[in-house]
Computed example of a mutant assay.
Amino acid sequence: MSNKELSKDESLALITDMIGQAKRNVAKGGSFYFLLWGWVVMIANLGHYLIAKFDWYEHPYIVWVLTIPAGIISMVYGAKRSNEAKVKSHLDRLYSQIWLAVFIGVLIILFFMDSVNYNVNAIILTFAGIGTFISGQALRFSPLSMGGIALWIASVVAFNLNPTDQYIVGAVGILAGYLIPGYLLRRAEK
């Protein structure tokens, strides 16, 4: 390896290339998470709503067990992508930390759901909106940023409904906030 000093132009090109690689690492495969979680959470919201509304089963929240395999799939996929990444940048770490913070916030809300009168869906939509909006800004992908805004709007609507009706709003919010931007991101990745 040579000890040659880089010129200003070479240094700038190297930095630009590293930033571009980091953005590609974050963006590549990002649609997978939005699509996986979008479908799982939308189905769980709809299932919970239907079971509760029509009193089909005493414990409508049972549909949320769908998130367990989705979590396992996400972790396996994330570990595989992390091992394949050529460059792990500050942006890669920041992106994963944003979603870790959202996940921890959601867990705290779920743990104390009785303290918020079971209005958890409205709060979770707010957290999902934050993660999605920041992801859109980090990737400079406006459909994700707009998805975050859609989730915030769904959150405002949900706060004005009873806990059961919040699930139908949650399903629509996830469609607008995760699935539509997720499919647009997948198309952009190709």
Rank of each mutant, 00 (worst) to 15 (best):
I108R: 03
D9R: 10
M18T: 11
N3C: 10
G131S: 03
I130S: 06
K4P: 00
V76Q: 05
F133I: 14
G182V: 13
D17W: 12
G30A: 15
M75N: 05
I19M: 10
R140E: 14
Y95F: 12
H48V: 06
T164L: 15
L50V: 14
K88R: 11
S96R: 07
W99A: 10
K4E: 15
N162C: 09
V41G: 01
F32V: 09
Y178A: 12
E10F: 05
L185P: 00
K86D: 09
L14T: 08
A70V: 07
R81D: 11
G105V: 10
D17C: 10
I51G: 01
E84T: 12
R93D: 15
Y57V: 04
S74P: 04
V102R: 05
Y33M: 07
G129I: 02
S89F: 01
A22G: 15
L179Y: 02
A13S: 12
N162Y: 06
S2G: 10
L12G: 03
K88M: 07
A85R: 06
Y49W: 12
D165I: 06
A13T: 01
S142T: 14
E189G: 04
A138L: 15
P69V: 05
L175P: 00
L151W: 03
K80P: 05
Q97E: 05
P181N: 07
I51Q: 04
G147D: 02
K80T: 10
A70F: 09
Y61F: 12
K23W: 07
F34K: 04
K8H: 10
D9F: 03
A44E: 02
W64V: 05
F32Y: 04
M18P: 03
T67W: 13
K80S: 07
E10P: 00
V41S: 11
S11Y: 02
G38K: 13
I109G: 01
L179Q: 06
G38T: 10
R93Y: 00
Q21E: 14
S74K: 09
S2C: 08
G38H: 09
I51N: 02
G182N: 13
I51S: 03
V87P: 00
V76D: 04
H48G: 02
V157K: 01
L151G: 06
S155G: 14
I68N: 04
I180S: 04
A70D: 00
F111P: 00
L94C: 11
I104M: 08
G136K: 14
N162R: 11
A22K: 02
Q166R: 11
Q166D: 07
Y49T: 04
N121D: 00
A44I: 09
G71L: 13
M113T: 11
Y118N: 15
V102Y: 01
P143Q: 11
S89A: 11
